[in-house]
């Protein structure tokens, strides 16, 4: 699977920058404007899904290998608990919102640990959703490699002919 046509590839290579930028904006400004870690993480995941649909899986695997992706997922979860323990260290209570006195209200640097939590949650949600969608799409490709028990010989032949035609 080599991806879609040239038009789709060109457009998506322009649009991917905007989508990633929008996702980062939503994550960073989650404590001031609508949005937050959940929405921003899903936007980031959808940018990689767009690349996967347009350029094929090998291109995305070169950019973001699955091992790195699952590590990002785990790191997101661990950092969220680390932020909670930060509250124990500085405030005495689990999930205490410390550092609240830094920055002014209505500014980007404000609200203590809430922007940090937003970033971590965005990382975690984006990485895990991208992982699931990649696995679901990769599963179908392997489907044609092995002979299923329920497939008749004619079907296998047809499938092989189709594969040959596509490879030409």
């Amino acid at each position: 699977m080599k991806g879609m046509s040239v038009i789709v590839k060109t457009i998506s290579s322009w649009v991917k920058v905007l989508i990633i930028l929008f996702g980062i904006y939503i994550v960073l400004f989650g404590h001031l404007t609508p949005g937050g870690g959940f929405a921003g993480g899903v936007v980031l995941a959808s940018s990689y899904v767009l690349l996967m649909l347009a350029f094929g899986r090998e291109f995305v695997l070169k950019n973001l290998p699955l091992s790195l992706d699952s590590k990002l997922d785990c790191v997101g979860g661990i950092l969220f608990i680390a932020i909670a323990i930060l509250g124990v260290v500085f405030g005495g209570v689990f999930f205490k919102n410390c550092f609240i006195e830094y920055g002014q209200k209505f500014n980007l640097i404000s609200a203590g640990t809430i922007p940090l939590s937003n970033i971590v949650i965005g990382l975690k949600v984006g990485a895990s959703l991208y992982l699931v969608i990649f696995l679901l799409s990769a599963f179908r490709r392997d489907d044609s490699d092995e002979q299923s028990v329920f497939r008749s010989p004619e079907e296998i032949h047809d499938r092989a002919m189709k594969d040959e035609k596509e490879s030409n």
């Binding site: 609508p34 937050g36 979860g77 999930f95 949650i121 975690k124």
Partner: peptide
């Protein structure tokens, strides 16, 4: 909390345990 988005201040400060549970559920589903 200092956050102007009140929904954000609820899910990440007042009820952060909720978000921790959500992260756990998502992790388990994945």
């Amino acid at each position: 909390t200092g956050a102007t988005n009140i929904v954000s201040s609820i899910i990440l400060d007042y009820r952060a345990y909720d978000t921790l549970g959500e992260a756990t559920v998502l992790f388990t589903a994945v």
